[in-house]
Design a protein around this nucleic acid. Structure first.
Lengths: 247, 247
DNA sequence: CGGACCCTTGAGAGCGGTCAAGACTAGTGG
DNA sequence: CCACTAGTCTTGACCGCTCTCAAGGGTCCG
């Protein structure tokens, strides 16, 4: 069971990141140690703070908290294009030498880990596994993006919300952030969820009620309980392969 | 004017690919020559043929024609997640050593160019510019994906179609596939367009009529004329920066 | 206790979907 | 060269999922 990763992981956020990376590609003790030394822990950032590209230049990793990539259209409409959970890279610009162009905002108290670009280049040269793991992380990020396209394009409101809750369950399980009782913290308002899945706040609310009434989930103060993963998966038409969590 | 790239480019599809790559990162004569030798021209593939991952293993490039990445849901609904135009890589799995998981289908007579993975690895080592160009291509592909998310999430039918027509105008201009009179070939049916922008065939039809009536575009037998790029851009709320075509 | 933000609920409107049928086009075979 | 056919484009009518507007209730925090 994925949630067992929790106790095994301990609670150091840098270890969590290293663990996450090693799921993409096994890392030996030496590579792990090099990573530990390379990651600088940043300050705590309050919720709803926008991160400017300079703020996550270098190679940035989310150690704890929650970050959303979003875009604000001229007419005021907002779309969240990606959700970054602890253990994830904030942005993959470093792999192509391009500067991040996306806007990012925290939705919870968050802490970044940073690796100087120069240091990362050396790490990548010395430990090919670290480079490969990062590339696979980027590929998975792209796969998640495609999944979002599919959700927004052809899935109903219920399917979209069920999908994203399933996805988060698997992603958070991989970094030990789901509880044994089947819950996880989701520090997003219903309005923010709507901006992520392309629905209005009102409709998110009504749709979540449907999911609750079917007994698939329950919600309480920023926490999601997955009451029946099988039912939720069925409602979503969800298949976790794209997250490539089972090597 | 971007369409001037046409005459300058000549009509060899391998040169087109090299030109496209060089827009991401300048390539010297030696690198270009190495690429020329590395690319194997594949056979002509008829329209509506599905490409299986083995068919574009290695590193595959679309030399001519048109390819769509898509996903078929269990309920029969289909979503096109990406459009590959000549000069583009078909898939970026080679950068992370993962096998392509996406389904691909041709929508026109197409020809692939292939570089053996081993050969590409050598090329990348010998010519860092080629590797960087490929990585930037992948980053741009991701940016196009994000743009699609935004379209599907918060844009109206008119905006979505105007956006995609704008995007294709710029992408095709970059590889000399737009005419001086402002037209390009779009080998997709309205049903396929709908699968790409998340609209029903009927609504695509009606929405295209709106775009025609405003004088922004005209359509005829698989050809799109951009009659008023400024108007189309305004209707779409389009900004081509994400395509990173102006270095 | 007050205020701000979030969640919830109701009512009505609209964008886009579905169903269905006719018109057009291109490719096929006689 | 001309039917014939299949696929695509087009149009109309109706439906429904989701949006917008609006207001009430909860909850957290100052």
């Amino acid at each position: 069971m994925s949630s067992l990763a929790g106790p095994l992981l301990g609670n150091d956020p840098v270890e969590r990141f290293i663990h996450r990376l090693s799921l993409f590609e096994p890392l030996d003790a030496e590579a792990r140690e090099a990573l530990r030394r390379a990651v600088n822990r940043g300050p705590l950032i309050p919720p709803l703070q926008e991160l400017h590209p300079e703020a996550f230049g270098d190679v940035s990793v989310l150690l704890s908290g929650w970050i959303c990539h979003f875009r604000l259209l001229t007419n005021g409409r907002r779309q969240i294009t990606a959700m970054v959970v602890p253990g994830d890279f904030v942005d993959f610009g470093f792999l192509s030498g391009t500067v991040a162009t996306a806007q990012c905002v925290t939705t919870a108290h968050s802490q970044l880990g940073r690796i100087r670009t120069r240091t990362f280049t050396e790490l990548a040269a010395q430990f090919p596994a670290i480079l490969r793991a990062s590339q696979r992380a980027a590929a998975t990020d792209a796969a998640i993006g495609r999944e979002r396209i599919i959700s927004l394009g052809v899935r109903t409101a219920t399917e979209r919300l069920a999908s994203i809750l399933c996805e988060l369950w698997y992603r958070l399980s991989a970094v030990g952030l789901t509880s044994a009782e089947g819950s996880y913290d989701l520090p997003m308002t219903q309005a923010e969820l709507g901006a992520a899945v392309g629905l209005s706040t009102v409709h998110v609310n009504r749709t979540l009620q449907v999911l609750r009434r079917t007994g698939a989930i329950s919600l309480q103060s920023g926490k999601v309980w997955i009451r029946d993963l099988r039912k939720l998966t069925a409602l979503a038409g969800f298949d976790p392969v794209y997250l490539s969590l089972e090597p």
